[in-house]
Design a protein around this nucleic acid. Structure first.
Lengths: 223, 223
DNA sequence: CCAAAAGTGTTATTGATACACCCATGC
DNA sequence: GCATGGGTGTATCAATAACACTTTTGG
């Protein structure tokens, strides 16, 4: 029993890990970073880090998203706190997991950012991650799926103006099933959260689509 | 990502606080303990404590519920993690809040336990608590209210056998509004989670009620 | 005029709500 | 026989699901 954990009565470390989602290439993607240090050197992991002096949890999330991903999330919320004693093989670390949303239009690069060791990965092709991060991503996808049904969380994944077909595709990607166009549009209009911008899409050899925006920029619970 | 800790990272303390609910006297009640130490000496607070070496978060919850309340919760789940830098005036402490359910039949004493400095308090008459504990209780009540609508979380607050009118009163207390008897019973039967025990209530100058039990002892999401 | 996506209503089914009386028992 | 809670069904309304064709544009 001569490991560090037992010898000095250290308090558990506290980290914040963030599941950053974006929709791109008709897939739900998560941002992963390649670890340079032990444990799990060379493995992919969620962006995260230790909580700093006097820093709030939300502050840490913003810092991590900015540092690791070089962008600003348009929405984030706390997911769950994971504290199994053996989740970090070296020392006791509990992690407060968050998930964050970024519209694809804010990404520095279309799919893969140029920063070495940082990559957007489709959730359906997730590799084996460091620590218990697969479980965290799983949780996050579940939460996202649940919330899209009864809230306007989609705001966080869309640019300020979008076509209804964009919105519908977003729902379909997250829910993993096709939706009926007429019912979908009826329901979206019924929420009262959308408004026409008056502008129309410019490109395409087809009838131009009306561009919409969300009235509230904040995520709102429906019904 | 849990990097190896470095010197310049602060080690925040990690506590677990538990909102323990029971239904009694037609009220939703929370267990509070009176603080003997600074800060907030003499104030009521949620039962809680620091995470011990090698102890899981769930282990800590069980320990706290057992030590402080002298009972076993029939259900608990993680609520939220509160980490504002100033939430503890002395040092940095982040707390992982849980809520727990106990059926009134398991209480050592009908309403107030005899342990000094521990008291069941109706959520509607909550005093000003230590730290950010009022906020935590508020969150917990919200969660309980939300979950009772779409899960069988009520299992945790009822004895193994109960009348349908007990179940309905429980829903009414938590939701804070009256429910229609016929619709309520229809809906409960429709979940398929209840079964008749064959036994009937023994007391009362009225038609004896059928006693029911939950088929699953675990909390289950409905629909 | 062809391809491609935009846009639009009606019907059927399901679930939610509103509502009032008879039943079995103890005293 | 009366007070007390137990127990039951139907009709209306709202929400959801299924389903197909016309419109506007670019090339």
């Amino acid at each position: 029993m001569a490991d560090t954990k037992e010898m000095n009565y250290e308090e558990p470390g506290v980290t914040v890990d963030v599941v950053i989602f974006t929709i791109s290439e008709d897939r739900l993607n998560v941002l992963l970073v390649k670890r340079n240090e032990e444990p799990f050197r060379g493995r992919w992991a969620l962006p995260g880090g230790f909580l700093l002096q006097g820093e709030s949890l939300e502050g840490a999330v913003k810092r991590i998203v900015d540092q690791k991903a070089g962008l600003k999330a348009s929405y984030f919320e706390q997911l769950y706190t994971f504290g199994q004693p053996d989740r970090d093989p070296r020392s006791r670390v509990i992690t407060v997991a968050y998930f964050a949303l970024v519209p694809w239009t804010r990404l520095p690069e279309p799919v893969s950012p140029k920063v070495a060791g940082v990559e957007w990965t489709p959730t359906v092709y997730l590799p084996e991650l460091a620590f218990d991060h697969n479980r965290i991503v799983f949780y996050a996808v579940e939460r996202l799926r649940a919330k899209i049904a009864y809230s306007s969380i989609a705001v966080g994944l869309l640019p300020t103006m979008f076509r209804l077909s964009d919105l519908q595709r977003l729902y379909e990607i997250i829910l993993g099933r096709e939706l009926d166009k007429r019912n979908f549009r009826k329901k979206m209009h019924a929420t009262g959260l959308l408004e026409e911008t008056g502008q129309r899409e410019i490109i395409g050899a087809h009838r131009p689509a009306m561009l919409y925006r969300f009235k509230e920029k904040k995520v709102v619970n429906i019904d």
